[in-house]
Design a protein around this nucleic acid. Sequence first.
DNA 1: CTCATCACGGTTTTT
DNA 2: CCGTGATGAG
Length: 665
Amino acid sequence: MSVLDNPLLNPQQREAVDTIEGPLLIIAGAGSGKTRTVTCRIARMLELGIPPEAVLALTFTNKAAREMAERVASLIGKTSRGLTVSTFHAFGVRLLRDHIPLAGWKENFSIYDQGDKISLIKEASRNLRAGSENTDLYRIASLFSAVKTGRGRFEGSDMPLKGLYEEYQALLKVYNAVDFDDLIVLPEMILSAHSRALEKVRDTYRYIMVDEFQDTSAAQYRLLHLLGSEHRNVCVVGDDDQSIYSWRGADYHNILAFEKDFPEVKEIKLEQNYRSTGTILTAANNLIAHNKNRKSKELWTGSDGGTHIELFSPENEYEEARYIARIIRELSLRERKTYHDFGVLVRANSLTAVIEEVFLDEGIPYRVSGGMSFFQRGEVKDIIAYLRLLLNGDDDINFLRIINTPRRGIGRTTLTRIREESDLKKQSLYSSAQALVHAADTPLDGRAIKNLKEFLDLLDDFSLRIRERNKLSETVRLLVDRVEFWGFLLQEHPKNTQVAKWKYDNIQRFIGMIDAWERDPDNRRKDPWAFLNRITLTTQEEDGQGEQGKVGLMTIHAAKGLEFDTVFLPALEKGILPHRRSLEENESNLEEERRLFYVAITRAMNRLFITWCRKRRVMREEIEAEVSPFLEELPKDLVMYHTPETAAKPEEVAALFEAFRAARK
DNA sequence: CTCATCACGGTTTTT
DNA sequence: CCGTGATGAG
């Protein structure tokens, strides 16, 4: 039986699935069965005999990539080896693995994440003796990113930044490291300049598919164009109304560029929504109609009606959280919903704190996604830093991170000496440290030499172990023991063994993850370098098991692509959604903020609860909160103001709960 | 060189 | 209110 016979496909979807050759643009509204269409299309390709190696599917997040691979596998009944489903960035790594020497880097390069990038900018600034200009490093980092990807210039900003950027770039190269932007920009550069490499890549990936196309950046588009303009079998899927990553360079104008660069493109619109009630969909349609810049599109649904959107304005954020908790409990009792039917979506990570507190207090199980990733926790990053350094001795940033972690008596003076040597000889800190330890006229005192030598011997020892291809998880376990990390954690948290324990557990968990990765039969490349790159590109925590049956608490951004029976949107306040800082940055961000609201609404299948507080505690003070102006853009007849009286009283809830418990026995 | 104390700020969103 | 970074004493 062919994929095309799948009864779940509507005519538009089927046409998309059956259009394999030539450029294809699928405008897929929220909840329009996009994933099904895309995965069926891949299955169709394989069915037609296209070898999996020739198919490249690019997604935006790791999670999306994993899900797509899984769904394709379940469609064709086996894991399709050879199929490439990856994020743009991971694909960039793959290209660089083969070709980076062409750009002047060595093959064992390190990838620097946001944190490393900030450290590197600090380092560059120190080198230039630019003084500790406490200008916002965060902003500098994003300006550098804009410049590198070709969507920003230094004009208009302060002049010293250009020098700083050049130093930053030079350091990256010396450290044999690349940042996230390089993962896109370097492949583009290499492939543009080396036609043989380009031809090889083009011949390999003859069918390309891009999911969440509205989230691609200009640089990513250029890379895509490079890969696909020859064979033109490029299919992009997106929804301009769900473009919410412009701050990161995403540019939904790529949709227009695509139409221009591939004029023979076939366009298919998926406008039937299978997710939400008529009420929710109408509200979403009315809201998004306020945006001027969009491709016209109107979602419709076969199902009608649905309950009103419920509004409520609690006194403060605690009352708001308790209100949400109460509704969740009521609905799970009355309507037999399970906890994972509920999603609480917020604009900013900081808004989750109070809700977590109350959920914890009221015994509502929840899971938070987004926020700091496991791999970015300090103690885990420390261990990762060891590994990075062991694989790439030029990596000064990671050298600096661990040279005195755990404390080994190497301080500022010694470090300054090593830096001087390194500046003088133009070599890495590691090499300079080696040189200073063994030099006859070393400026270091005996104690420093001894400590430093111990550290270097440790590095040499473990670098050998890694090269000998010992089991990585065992090697890391040994390393953690050897540097006495547990003792270090205890020393760092003298008053709080709990915290030390927690951090140590994280490290054990990390080792467990390495172990699992080494055992995974689906991994083709098992070298430590591949592992490190993988986790550097995994900033969002992978949804592990044990997450079933919990309320989803996350940012709106993190909720994209998900759906919930019931959605809560707390803090729908002026200054939060639309976010003040977003508007301060650029007035025109208002439309993106509205899209954010749109994405949030369209996550809901059946019910939507919107709340805003009268007062809210921000930092130290309590401020008067105001309702978001977006709320007025929802049709009045679809909303209903929820007064506490209409809700169940606590006694009633208790009674229901008792009945529920009795029923289970 | 390490430890303690103090001041400060809280990052919108993530590969 | 809590965690991080700078600064100064031992």
